[in-house]
Design a protein around this nucleic acid. Structure first.
Lengths: 139, 139
DNA sequence: GTCCTTGCAAAGCGTTTGCACAGAA
DNA sequence: TTCTGTGCAAACGCTTTGCAAGGAC
């Protein structure tokens, strides 16, 4: 996404595209590694010298509220975030802590099984050991 | 499950069945409302006057480690727990905060799609508004 | 005696809140 | 001026840790 497109997208979501907000979104969309608040803060602090963690919290909660970013629930206490994109699931490696994007699964909640519930969001999280860590264990 | 069966089950999992541990498990298995540490503590404090939150934390982490109890990841910061049972998914109401057990969905992760990953746990969490809260909103 | 369960107190840490300053409109 | 974005400092709340007392074996 170009800077112009991103600014337009933000405006359409009622988010005024400040420099800080643009950089936080760009960073998340480039890396796609489900960063924590702390990781975003540490990564951007050098180029945005006055950045504070409070601002990262503020920006992320605004993004989540407006639907630009999703919060991921994992086994760890620290929340993780990702830019909204096509449906997919997550795999968390309990050894290295890395989160992998994996293909979505077909949901089979039909009218009958969840009658009366208004579903707004769905998350599928697998937990286990990733190929890399499995390989390291062998050696 | 009878007291005797529970004690046997604990012993088979290498958990010595103390009074505190038995009561915490029984409470969770009776209620099945995915309680927080605080809820368990407050509910059992009257009958176990010397109970402390630290003990609840200790017991729960032991239970999770031994596979007697599962920890649930939800949108809220506070962790929730449930006694291990058949595969199912969760629906969290963002209005009242209640967690509902819902039918499981068929997973379609075949060899090809997740090759090399060792999957130990899977969680499906839906988020939205429950029938009761939807009804209340209308009025 | 040793080992284990329990629990008080304190620390740890991610997150939120209060509030104020600066820049934009 | 008013509104908005930002950020320091403090508070908050869940969880973990250190450590000691009591009981089981």
């Amino acid at each position: 996404m170009t800077q112009e497109n991103l600014q337009e997208r933000m405006r359409s979501l009622d988010i005024s595209p400040s420099v800080t907000r643009l950089r936080i979104y760009e960073y998340m969309d480039e890396r796609r590694d489900h960063p924590t608040v702390d990781q975003i803060y540490k990564a951007l602090a050098p180029e945005l010298p006055t950045l504070s963690k409070t601002t990262v919290y503020n920006v992320l909660s605004l993004f989540v509220e407006k639907g630009l970013v999703d919060a991921i629930n994992t086994d760890v206490n620290e929340k993780r975030y990702e830019t909204s994109r096509d449906d997919h699931a997550h795999f968390t490696c309990k050894v290295c802590g890395k989160i992998y994007d994996i293909p979505p699964i077909q949901t089979s909640y039909t009218e009958g099984s969840l009658q009366g519930f208004q579903v707004l969001k769905q998350q599928v999280n697998l937990c286990g050991i990733c190929p890399t860590c499995l390989e390291n264990k062998k050696e």
